[in-house]
């Protein structure tokens, strides 16, 4: 885990090589998938139709998300992020992170680049983790589905447990990350 640096969001470091390797890997995955479907032709139709659905979804969502990431990166000042989600933001920062995550704003992979941009701007590790987790499992439309299919007792219990544990987890992860950084900064300690 020696290269486990937490912060290289946006992937600016050594971009060309990393990106080329990424494309090679994606190409290999697509090729492997195609070969697999050639062996099992009966599965080809459902696989291709799922892929088409996702590509369509990406095409309608991803450009907008990228525009938002760019705008946040350039226009939102560091001070604002630090003030609302930084070290001194306290419980208000936690609440804001939960609310931001719970808004109906699309699937989790949309959140990764956005959260990484916030992290780079000075948001606390714990708040970014809380936002990601809330984004993953406390989405408002999703909770309505849960209410309808699993009942209010199940939903409320799972929701409250999740919020409490996610906050605890995020603070814990922040501790671990910072501990790692301190240790790296003072070799021999």
């Amino acid at each position: 885990m020696s290269q486990g640096q937490p912060a290289k969001p946006g992937g600016q470091g050594g971009p060309a090589v990393g990106v080329a390797r990424g494309y090679a890997f994606a190409g290999a995955a697509a090729l492997a998938g195609a070969l697999l479907l050639l062996r099992f032709p009966a599965k080809a139709l459902p696989a291709v139709s799922t892929a088409r659905d996702y590509v369509l979804e990406m095409m309608t969502i991803l450009p907008a998300v990228m525009v938002i990431v760019g705008l946040v990166g350039v226009f939102v000042s560091k001070d604002v992020v630090v003030k609302y989600m930084g070290k001194a933001s306290g419980p208000r920062g936690i609440l804001l992170s939960i609310v931001a995550g719970a808004l109906p704003t699309g699937p989790l992979y949309v959140a990764f680049p956005l959260a990484a941009a916030l992290l780079k701007k000075g948001a606390r590790v714990s708040n970014v983790m809380i936002m990601l987790s809330a984004w993953a499992c406390i989405k408002l439309p999703q909770e309505l589905m849960e209410l309808q299919f699993l009942g209010w007792r199940f939903m409320l219990l799972r929701l409250s447990l999740t919020i409490v544990l996610v906050v605890a987890m995020s603070l814990g992860i922040e501790r671990i990350i910072e501990w790692g950084e301190v240790r790296k900064a003072t070799p021999g300690a």
Partner: peptide, 23 residues
């Protein structure tokens, strides 16, 4: 310009993800 750069970088893992999900 930053949006475009992010997009180019993020596309490969997304392609991989779509392949995995579809299969």
């Amino acid at each position: 310009r930053m949006s475009l750069k992010t997009f180019i970088g993020i596309l490969p893992p997304i392609i991989t993800m779509i392949v995995a999900i579809s299969l």
